[in-house]
Amino acid sequence: MMQVMDSILTVILIILALLTLVCMIKAVIGPRVGDRIVCVNMMGTMVMTIIAILAIKMKEGYLVDICIIYAMISFLAVVVLCKVYMGVYAARRERIRSKQRKEDVEASANESAESTMSVDGKQGDESKNGTMECSEKEAK
């Protein structure tokens, strides 16, 4: 029975290795960042199963400790990747927004400059008139 169990566990290990390979290919071709993170998470799960099966197959109980540590590090990797990509996306959007805001400000500045120029022209005329009146008064 032990030999049968060993051979079945070997076959299961080979199947899991093939599935992990498929996961890795999927992680490479996944179009978005989220697909890649999901595939990395899945790969972590499968590697944990492989380590646990090895621990039972080789009768080495301490390999399960590595399994626990692998679970924790895999979870940490997913959390950190999510936070990092959220930050990258926010920074990119903020850059695009600030560029748009700058363009808006420039456009409104041009408009206001034109309007102030016209206002200045009127004011200049008035002041000219005023100075002319003043000079006329002085002349009188």
Binding site: R32, G34, K83, Y89
Partner: peptide
């Protein structure tokens, strides 16, 4: 505990960045 948390974070990332 870890798997639902990771799924929540990934779905939040996807919903925020798509």
């Amino acid at each position: 505990f870890a798997s639902p948390t990771a799924s929540h974070l990934i779905s939040r990332l996807e919903a925020a960045t798509d």
